[in-house]
């Protein structure tokens, strides 16, 4: 399956190019037009990305989250939820790289086939970096009034975290 996954991108790219060739599109010109747009987009999102990374760095390095979840520890332990998953679940909406680092750490220390390893795998798959994506996407088009977007995103994350735990427990518990 993982080998098969290697084919996705090349097949996708080849398919697009061959189809365009068949339709007699000026492929090279099209690519240049699009690529230029990509550069423009990068500049457009730059302020939002820099702003978010700046704030995220300060927040994550303050270890405020660790402080908060030290209070939740007894509750989680009594529910049978492995404590190691909490940092990952809380950082997940903020930073993708930080989450991957924690997951790698869990794999290293407990193995990918442990309960917490499987839980981490499922958690990674079912949620995304909600706050970062919102800041990036809305920042790129300068939308500041985001209405209920954040609440909906975080609500979905919370449901995702809970269902990941229940599903892992049902399937592998």
């Amino acid at each position: 399956m993982a080998n098969l996954a290697n084919y996705i991108v090349p097949v996708f790219v080849l398919g697009i190019i061959l189809y365009a060739f068949h339709k007699k599109v000026n492929i090279y010109e099209s690519f240049l037009v699009g690529a230029k747009e990509g550069i423009v987009t990068t500049f457009k999102i730059a302020p939002a990305v820099i702003a978010m990374v700046f704030a995220t760095n300060i927040f994550l390095n303050s270890h405020f989250l660790e402080f908060v979840f030290s209070y939740f520890q007894p509750l989680l332990t009594s529910l049978g939820i492995p404590i190691q998953i909490l940092p990952m679940a809380m950082i997940r909406p903020i930073s993708g790289t930080a989450t991957l680092a924690i997951m790698t750490n869990i794999f290293q220390n407990y193995g990918p086939d442990s309960f917490v390893g499987r839980l981490a795998s499922n958690l990674q798959g079912c949620t995304d970096t909600t706050i970062y994506v919102l800041a990036l996407y809305f920042g790129s088009i300068k939308v500041t009034k985001t209405k209920h977007a954040l609440q909906a995103g975080l609500f979905a994350d919370l449901v995702g975290i809970i269902s990941a735990f229940i599903i892992t427990w049902l399937f592998f518990g």
């Binding site: 790219v13 697009i16 190019i17 189809y19 365009a20 339709k23 747009e37 730059a46 990305v49």
Partner: peptide, 24 residues
């Protein structure tokens, strides 16, 4: 982070422009 994203953005918007122009 932006420098990591830039090459991918450029590449994919380029490829997708081809897909757009060919009506795929």
């Amino acid at each position: 982070l932006l420098l990591d994203m830039l090459p991918l953005l450029v590449l994919w918007t380029g490829i997708m422009q081809i897909a757009e122009d060919s009506h795929l």
